[in-house]
Design a protein around this nucleic acid. Structure first.
Lengths: 113, 113
DNA sequence: CATTGACACCTAGCAATTCTAGGCATACTT
DNA sequence: AAGTATGCCTAGAATTGCTAGGTGTCAATG
């Protein structure tokens, strides 16, 4: 996967993963790797700051949980986060469609009349 | 369209547009806007540096043309550019598929057996 | 003829975001 | 006691699109 291809799409991915239920950071990373068949194998230094940013934006809440003497920070989607996810989905759709149109479109683009 | 969604995908778009024939900078911008139905309305300050970068990378060649007293710089794909386009296309496919898998995938991701 | 707008090019620095590279702490195993 | 896995964190580097400014020609408008 090329350099910074996910620029601007990472929020979508993280929100989508958390939409299925609360998870802690490591679990988010695992889930991304799993769902994407290893295409997204993100370093912690990439994911943690995103979680913090989303929490600051009110899209997530976090809670410390103690599991076998180890502390975990579990993140959960807020209503605002769910709304943001919907927006991001729509945005992705539009973006992907536009890219498709550009790269598949021959010279005179088919106008949508 | 959200902030910097095209990060890392802009080369693909520009190469794809030039794959249909040589064009000058403004025409590339117009074509992107047209093919994408206004989704990609890129400022000159975004596109020109990309053209320069791609030329420096040997994926494009340029040629000055005089049209009605106005000078244009016309860009043309090289063989290397065509190869790069193929790579970028493949990369996009992979990326888009991975995103799809993540955002559509429910809790236990559907394993591809 | 001066001004405005469209065409057409350019670059320096800003801003946003991912990644690198380190660090910390606990538990379990050797 | 040391090493490995789990789990968290952050500062700064690197990348790259965008802002904001600049140049110059041509055609239309006042």
């Amino acid at each position: 996967m090329k350099g910074q291809a996910l620029k601007g799409h990472l929020d979508l991915l993280v929100l989508a993963v958390l939409a299925d239920g609360p998870k802690h950071g490591y679990a988010v990373i695992d889930e991304l790797r799993g769902r994407s068949a290893d295409a997204f194998d993100l370093p912690e230094g990439t994911v943690y700051p995103v979680l913090h940013r989303l929490e600051k934006a009110g899209q997530l809440t976090s809670e410390w949980v103690e599991v076998g003497g180890r502390r975990r920070r579990t993140y959960r989607l807020t209503d605002r986060g769910r709304a943001a996810l919907a927006d991001e989905r729509a945005g992705w759709q539009k973006f992907a469609d536009a890219v498709s149109a550009v790269i598949s479109g021959g010279a005179p683009w088919p106008n949508p009349t």
